[in-house]
């Protein structure tokens, strides 16, 4: 196996595109190395993106936050401006693994690994995150929900590299939140999860919302009907019940020893309610 650590994204694309054998990008390696060591994959080439200048940076620009594809989730948690703007995205990223995993794992890697239970995805979709991709055809920007197409599958083509994840600057009175259900308090994969981002209008009435569920379908699912149930309300009990019902309806989970279909479906509604309440409370306290 060849290991390369190119110094710019163009070289990385060229290396990936020209390899005849199996080529993989390496960000934090917390999925890739596990799969290599488990002999699920046997790469001929591994291209480490972390030496590309700036790829580990998190920058706040006037247009939004740019999170380099090599930035560790631990680094996300240390960025105060990002935590203030997108607390839900950061809390999702920080649920991934232990402190050891946090020191390496990235949200771009979490997305590209394409697990239905990837913790950062519901929060990223709720936040309208976009991925900046560099490939043989140049540079493009795609909404993150267009990237994962199924378990372990993405719409990325050979040679495509996600170089950054971009989050908008949230409008005033906006906040997000994310929670997952796992059978213990640390080190487990979501049985189901929910991410919500919302914006409040006059008198703290919800003006805009996005509700996304994780681990209840082949990919994270945006549930427009759940958002509709809470827009125009102050999350009264009636709105919350409709929110939960819409979420339950959107579930198409698998049945396994970690959670039955019934369980995942019911808990998705419960989590969506809790997460909406947290996001609402955070938004209310914002300017």
């Amino acid at each position: 196996m060849r290991y390369e650590s190119p110094r710019n994204s163009r070289d990385a694309v060229a290396l990936m595109a020209s390899e005849r054998g199996d080529a993989y990008l390496l960000a934090g390696g917390t999925d890739l190395l596990v799969r290599m060591r488990g002999e699920f994959i046997d790469p001929d080439l591994v291209v480490d993106i972390k030496r590309i200048p700036g790829i580990q940076d998190i920058r706040r620009m006037t247009s939004g936050f740019s999170i380099g594809a090599g930035a560790s989730c631990a680094a996300l948690g240390r960025n105060k401006a990002l935590v203030r703007a997108w607390p839900g995205v950061v809390e999702a990223a920080q649920l991934i693994g232990s402190d050891q995993i946090q020191g390496r794992c990235t949200i771009a890697g979490n997305m590209c690994n394409a697990s239905p239970a990837a913790d950062s995805m519901p929060a990223l979709i709720a936040a309208r995150a976009k991925a900046v991709i560099v490939g043989s055809g140049g540079r493009r920007r795609i909404a993150v929900d267009k990237i994962v197409t199924g378990p372990g599958k993405t719409s990325l083509e050979k040679g495509d590299i996600v170089v950054e994840i971009v989050l908008p600057i949230p409008p005033p009175k906006s906040a997000d939140a994310y929670q997952r259900f796992i059978p213990r308090s640390e080190m487990d994969i979501a049985v189901c999860s929910a991410g919500v981002s919302l914006t409040l209008g006059p008198r703290n009435v919800v003006k805009q919302a996005r509700v996304v569920l994780g681990a209840v379908a082949p990919t994270a699912v945006l549930v427009p009907n759940a958002a509709r149930a809470i827009v125009g309300t102050r999350l009264d009990e009636d709105a919350m019940m409709k929110l939960a019902a819409a979420c339950e309806k959107a579930c198409a989970p698998i049945d396994d020893k970690r959670g039955t279909v019934e369980f995942r479906t019911e808990v998705a509604g419960v989590l969506a309610r809790r997460v909406a309440a947290i996001a609402y409370d955070r938004a209310r306290r914002k300017r």
């Binding site: 650590s5 390496l26 390696g29 917390t30 480490d48 995993i101």
Partner: peptide, 17 residues
């Protein structure tokens, strides 16, 4: 590694350069 706690089983030796 560079101030960050990691699992050395999930890093390549070559990354230590």
């Amino acid at each position: 590694l560079d101030g960050e706690l990691i699992c050395s089983c999930l890093a390549l030796g070559a990354e230590a350069e």
